[in-house]
Simulated assay, not measured.
Amino acid sequence: MYNSAYAYLLLAIISEVIATSALKASDGFTRIVPVIVVVTGYVAAFYLLSLVLRSIPVGITYAIWSGVGIIFITLVAYFAFRQSLDIPALAGMGLILAGVLVINFFSKTVTA
């Protein structure tokens, strides 16, 4: 059950990252194709997130969702939109990743 929940969570994160990337490309909701991607991506992300919450506690789900999402969207911003990353940004993302790993490997809440 947990394996499918984590697969849904990964798909939800990917959907949200695609939607957020399209939001930037929508140019203030003035370009229709990116707007369609935004709406579809967010609907898919929240539907998948609702499936995840059947198995994984909301606090843990949100910690993973936000932490991994931040890292993924920052990578997309770097490669697709040429956003630069400095040492503090990279260090912060490392700390976020470390926090997600600590939650998953050491917290008893994950299996509650």
Rank of each mutant, 00 (worst) to 15 (best):
T20Y: 06
Y8Q: 03
F106L: 14
V38H: 09
A91L: 14
W65Y: 08
T74V: 06
A89Q: 13
I64Y: 03
V100Q: 01
A80E: 11
T61G: 05
G59L: 12
A77F: 04
Y62F: 14
L53G: 04
A22D: 01
Y6V: 08
L95Y: 06
G59C: 15
F105L: 10
V33H: 00
L97W: 15
G28C: 12
L97F: 12
F106V: 15
I32V: 14
L51G: 08
S84N: 11
I13C: 06
V110Y: 01
S4N: 09
L53N: 09
T30D: 07
D27K: 13
K108E: 12
K108N: 15
A80M: 13
S50V: 07
L23H: 08
M93P: 00
F46N: 12
V68P: 01
V35C: 00
A22F: 04
T74P: 03
I14K: 03
V35I: 13
A77D: 06
N104V: 09
G59P: 07
G92D: 07
S66Q: 07
A89E: 13
N104Q: 15
A25G: 06
A45E: 01
R82W: 03
L11N: 07
T111V: 15
I60L: 01
I96E: 04
V102L: 09
G69D: 03
A98D: 09
F106G: 06
M93T: 04
G99Q: 12
A98C: 13
L90Q: 10
Q83H: 14
V102R: 03
V110R: 13
V68K: 02
V76K: 04
L9K: 05
V38K: 10
V68S: 04
V110L: 10
T30Y: 07
M1P: 09
L101W: 07
A45W: 02
S50N: 05
L48M: 13
D27T: 04
T40Q: 03
L11I: 11
L10V: 11
I71Y: 09
T111I: 07
V100Y: 04
I56S: 02
N104C: 09
I70Y: 03
A22G: 08
T74G: 07
G28W: 02
G28N: 10
L51V: 07
S26F: 00
S15I: 07
D27Y: 01
G41V: 11
A89G: 15
I56T: 05
F72Y: 10
K24P: 03
I18N: 03
F29K: 05
I87W: 13
V52Q: 00
A44C: 12
G67D: 01
I87M: 14
I14S: 07
T30L: 04
R31N: 11
A63D: 05
L90W: 12
V68F: 03
L75Q: 05
L49G: 04
L90D: 01
I73Y: 06
I87V: 15
S15D: 07
K108I: 08
T109Q: 10
V39G: 00
K24Y: 05
L9N: 03
A112H: 11
T109L: 14
I56M: 08
Y8S: 00
V39H: 00
V58I: 13
S21Y: 02
T30G: 08
G99H: 12
L95S: 12
T20E: 09
Y8A: 01
L85H: 06
G67V: 01
I32R: 08
M1L: 11
T61E: 05
A112Q: 15
A22W: 00
Y62D: 11
